Simulated assay, not measured.
Amino acid sequence: MEEYVTIVFRTLFFYVLILVIFRIMGKREIGELSILDLVVFIMIGEMAVVSIDEPKDPLIYTVVPMILLMLIQILLALISLKSKKFRNLIDGQPSIIINRGKIDEKAMRKQRYNFDDLMTQLREKDIRSIADVEFAILESSGSLSVIEKIKNENAESQQGDITIPLILDGNIDEENLLRINKTNLWLRQELKKQGYRDVKKISFCSYENGKFFIDLKDE
């Protein structure tokens, strides 16, 4: 019975302690956490779990490392405020994935970021087409910041289809062709009409509302 009481006490104690530590470290949204933040948060959580699982170990063995991690994190945050080089080293730098409407495949490869990631994050921001994007910036937190192209003030807002990728990294997506009731031959013929004879040179191609959006590799 005593052991159960100890477990309940430790659970409540670490719940309050972790809340206090996180409040002292500062308020940040989950999507804005840096890699360093995540590492510290995970370590603190793991320490609390181990201490709860081992009720015979003194609390001080867990509390001291947790407080130490908090102090280290605060110190690093203060250094980051003073030094941009240190901040870039710890948090990394944003990467421009789409620059003036052009996809930067080199930046994507450097960040190990693929087209599925890009399409998912664009959909989360209610962006229907890559053709509507002027800039897309992959932040150091992993979130995607999007700046849409300026539309003509006289143009009426219309509902269109979502972007359907037909070519990714030079490979034709047969399943998406079936979704729009088109064939591989049709796609190749349409690309030839627009001057694109080699599919392997195309990094991304989508089709919507009767129009293609084509982006060549590393150009």
Rank of each mutant, 00 (worst) to 15 (best):
L78G: 01
G92E: 10
T163A: 15
S203G: 13
D169K: 12
E3W: 01
L138Y: 08
I30Y: 07
I52K: 02
N99P: 00
G45C: 02
V8D: 00
K82H: 06
L69R: 03
I103L: 15
N181C: 08
A107Y: 04
I137Q: 09
L89H: 05
D198T: 13
F86N: 01
L144T: 06
V199S: 03
R10G: 00
N114Q: 02
L36I: 14
L12Y: 00
I180L: 10
I162H: 10
V63F: 12
D116S: 12
I72Y: 12
I52C: 08
G142S: 10
G31H: 04
K217V: 07
R10N: 00
W186I: 12
L68H: 11
L168N: 11
N152Y: 09
V8T: 07
I202R: 01
R109C: 02
I127W: 05
R28C: 13
A107V: 08
Q194R: 15
D91Q: 08
F135I: 09
N181Q: 13
M70V: 08
R128N: 10
V20Y: 07
D53E: 15
E175Y: 13
F14M: 01
V16G: 00
I202L: 11
D57M: 07
G92S: 12
M1I: 15
F213C: 09
I24A: 06
Y196I: 13
I18S: 02
E2V: 06
G195L: 04
L191T: 08
Q121G: 03
L71N: 04
K106M: 12
Q73M: 03
E32M: 06
R188K: 15
A136W: 06
I96G: 10
R179I: 07
L81R: 07
V146N: 06
L59A: 06
D173H: 08
I30D: 00
I7D: 04
P55C: 05
Y61V: 00
G160N: 03
P58R: 08
I30F: 12
M66T: 04
E2H: 01
F212E: 07
I42P: 03
D91I: 08
V199Q: 04
L19A: 01
L185P: 00
M108C: 05
S140V: 03
L144E: 07
G45L: 04
V63Q: 03
F212H: 10
I90H: 04
L59P: 01
I60Y: 15
E174F: 09
D117F: 11
E139R: 06
L216I: 13
V63P: 03
G195A: 04
S34W: 12
D126P: 01
E139P: 06
R112W: 02
K27Q: 11
G26M: 09
I150K: 11
N114C: 03
S95G: 02
I150G: 06
V39Y: 09
I162L: 15
N154K: 13
E156I: 14
M43W: 08
E29Y: 05
L81K: 06
R100W: 00
N99W: 01
T11K: 00
S140M: 03
V39S: 05
K182Y: 12
G210W: 12
